[in-house]
């Protein structure tokens, strides 16, 4: 319950952060986020989130043929997505510092 609440509004920025270095397809993104990480409830929950990021124009998608299997949908961060990520990173840094200070006081 606590984890579900904490995830809200955070995971989307973690996904954007994973796309900073290079575009990625779904399964690759799951691996970048960490297959056993607590960021996703399950791997399938990544896809509604990616759809919303695309609708917000924070990522774009491109279908790329794959030599090893079916075509892959690559997700790429946009300039708007970069700006949103930078804003979040600055806010998150201050927020976590304040939370830690409060919890350890």
């Amino acid at each position: 319950m606590v984890l579900t609440q904490v995830r809200k509004g955070v995971v989307e920025y973690c996904v954007l952060a994973c796309l900073r270095s290079a575009p990625a397809y779904g399964l690759e993104l799951v691996e970048r986020l960490g297959t056993n990480s607590s960021l996703l409830t399950s791997e399938g929950t990544l896809y509604p989130l990616l759809s919303r990021l695309r609708q917000q124009a924070w990522v774009t998608t491109t279908q790329v043929p794959s030599a090893a299997g079916p075509p892959r949908r690559y997700y790429e961060i946009t300039d708007e997505g970069q700006v949103a990520l930078e804003t979040f990173t600055a806010t998150w840094s201050r927020f976590t510092t304040d939370v830690r200070t409060t919890l350890e006081s």
Binding site: Y25, L27, G44, R54, R72
Partner: peptide, 13 residues
């Protein structure tokens, strides 16, 4: 989009 992406994920896996 979600159904299509999950389908691709399953195919890739």
């Amino acid at each position: 989009e979600t159904v299509a992406a999950v389908r691709e994920h399953a195919a890739e896996s």
